[in-house]
Design a protein around this nucleic acid. Structure first.
Lengths: 248, 248
DNA sequence: CGCTGCGTTGAAATACATCAAAGAGTGTGG
DNA sequence: CCACACTCTTTGATGTATTTCAACGCAGCG
């Protein structure tokens, strides 16, 4: 078992930015071969992480950027009373840690949800390399902006008063993102628990459970534990875009 | 009257980054005199804007970064049914438009709430200058990260199930930000309507109204139209940090 | 087998939304 | 100066979606 793991890890460690399947989504996009080598030098590749592992903690550590290569993770802030607010779930090709580039360090915690592989780029090195590679700086801005835009989805979802719309928006967003990395957009395997999903959506766990049941009864979804199949994408879209006063 | 306006505008137009009171909060921070001139050249200063004026529209225009110098504005996205979700209110010293740096253009609309002065930096020029001034790139990252962190406040607020906590968190945040630009943190003049505030918090206008009344009765606030005086900051903090199951 | 962590389902309570109406501030025109 | 219209806000009465409280189901695992 230990053997298999090491082989997997070695494979992961050997992979360079040039080989990476996420190339186009990531920093190397539109960067030439020579510059790519320079970038490769500052990108640290970590052994696979397991559920519960922490990438970085609120307010601590050297600020770094992480790129999810495989798996998924969540980011959250801890509130005064000890409970948390989940800020996002992050899939392959997405950047995590942009909040830590300022002096104060990271403002949220990043925790792995399932077996996950990430690339780590210490921010200092990145800034240095970006200053020397003109295309990289541009690409970095583009990616930051992309992540910035993605963040805006969360409040839009939370702003919907009907709980079913929130869940529908979430599922659609997840579906789209999965499609973007070459997965079947209608077959979703949730890597987060109902509790984590409820927290993210600003609801309680029971409501999530009831909504899944209801959407299954409506014929929109087929739900089996963490596997969700979207049977009727149009109906899901309708639920997502439904105004707050339309009933269903 | 037209005379007075022109004088004000001329004053604004004459002001350089070096003179600006927001210097430390803005791009020029920690940039030397010579480089400052170069930055000054790409920063366009606009005549004062009035309530309802649009800085940029969703999906349109040359992407640019705006710095609020005086006044305030809101950003929002338009949803399918025609209603909007307000994403943020922006005070002097804050950056607006970071979502537009990617290829797709701005993903939200920025609209002025009151007489407002902004600086505009076309993103193309900024990237070019940033590549040549080492400190500027760093500072740009820092500021982007700062705005990124600020965005995280919105979902934290929306995640609270108790409406009174949402409003309390909002008021505290506003208070802090006002203090940061040298205003009295306990005397707030809201530049947004109840409707806009309700939308931002994911509530309806009647709830906002009732909450203001309640907080006034509790002795936490003194509310008079758009003027809010924080009488008991500790109580406000308590309301903000209150767990969702504590009653008040 | 019984334990434990998740998830589901039911019944009841409640906080917020909705519906409705009236008050307060502002501006217009007679 | 007052009457009128208009918008924004406040307040009250009622309804309802979601939370809360509680119990049960079910898979995984020692």
């Amino acid at each position: 078992m230990a053997n298999v793991t090491s082989i997997i890890n070695l494979r992961a460690l050997r992979q360079s930015c040039g080989d990476c399947g996420l190339n186009q989504l990531c920093l190397p996009a539109s960067i030439g071969g020579h510059d790519l080598d320079r970038l490769d030098h500052v990108v640290r590749q970590r052994p696979a992480l397991e559920r519960g592992d922490i990438l970085f903690h609120e307010g601590a550590g050297q600020p770094a950027l992480f790129i999810v290569r495989a798996g998924s993770l969540k980011t959250y802030t801890t509130l005064a009373e000890g409970d948390v607010q989940i800020l996002g779930f992050h899939l392959p090709g997405e950047l995590v840690g942009l909040d830590g580039l300022s002096a104060a360090g990271h403002r949220c915690t990043a925790e792995v949800l399932e077996r996950t592989i990430v690339c780590e780029v210490p921010f200092d090195s990145l800034a240095e390399v970006a200053a020397r590679i003109p295309g990289l700086q541009q690409q970095l801005f583009r990616i930051m902006s992309r992540e910035f835009s993605r963040e805006l989805e969360h409040p839009v979802m939370m702003g919907r008063k009907q709980a079913i719309s929130r869940l529908a928006i979430f599922l659609r967003s997840l579906s789209e993102r999965l499609e973007g990395i070459g997965h079947d957009p209608h077959e979703i395997t949730l890597s987060m628990s109902r509790q984590e999903l409820a927290n993210y959506l600003g609801l309680v766990i029971e409501t999530i459970s009831r909504l899944f049941s209801r959407m299954q009864t409506l014929g929109v979804l087929k739900v089996d534990r963490r596997t969700v199949r979207i049977l009727d994408p149009a109906a899901l879209a309708m639920l997502a875009e439904m105004a707050d006063d339309e009933s269903f």
